[in-house]
């Protein structure tokens, strides 16, 4: 079980959080103006990155606030977390090594 750094509460156990999928997929400003395909991309399509990507989390059993995280999907390692509205931090070019246990099947 990983520790996740809530930007408001600090590091807490993974079970306190709920997952919210890819971050920075904003609700379209004018959905009616989108074609069916463009709309379908918003509704159904998400990246499937092997590596560092931005995703959303919510600190469900504590402050109940949403935040964003950069995480390496290959190792599960969190590189950083940040508040909604904050700019996307540039990923560390030398990310921390595999968190212990991340490769468990």
């Amino acid at each position: 079980m990983q520790l996740i750094e809530c930007p408001w509460c600090g590091p807490r156990e993974e079970v306190e959080f709920s997952y919210g999928g890819q971050a920075h997929v904003p609700y379209p400003a004018d959905p009616a103006a989108l074609g069916d395909e463009e709309w379908a991309h918003y509704v159904f399509f998400r990246d499937n990155t092997a590596g560092v990507w931005a995703e959303r989390w919510m600190h469900a059993t504590a402050c109940r606030r949403w935040f964003n995280a950069l995480r390496d999907t290959r190792t599960h390692a969190f590189l950083t977390t940040y508040r909604p509205g904050d700019p996307v931090p540039s990923p560390d070019p030398h990310p921390t090594p595999t968190p212990e246990g991340a490769a468990n099947g």
């Binding site: 079980m1 990983q2 520790l3 993974e14 599960h76 968190p99 212990e100 246990g101 991340a102 468990n104």
Partner: peptide, 15 residues
């Protein structure tokens, strides 16, 4: 110090 105690699993982040 814990005797009669077996570490059964080692997980992420030092758990």
């Amino acid at each position: 110090q814990l005797q009669r105690t077996t570490a059964v699993g080692s997980y992420d982040d030092g758990l």
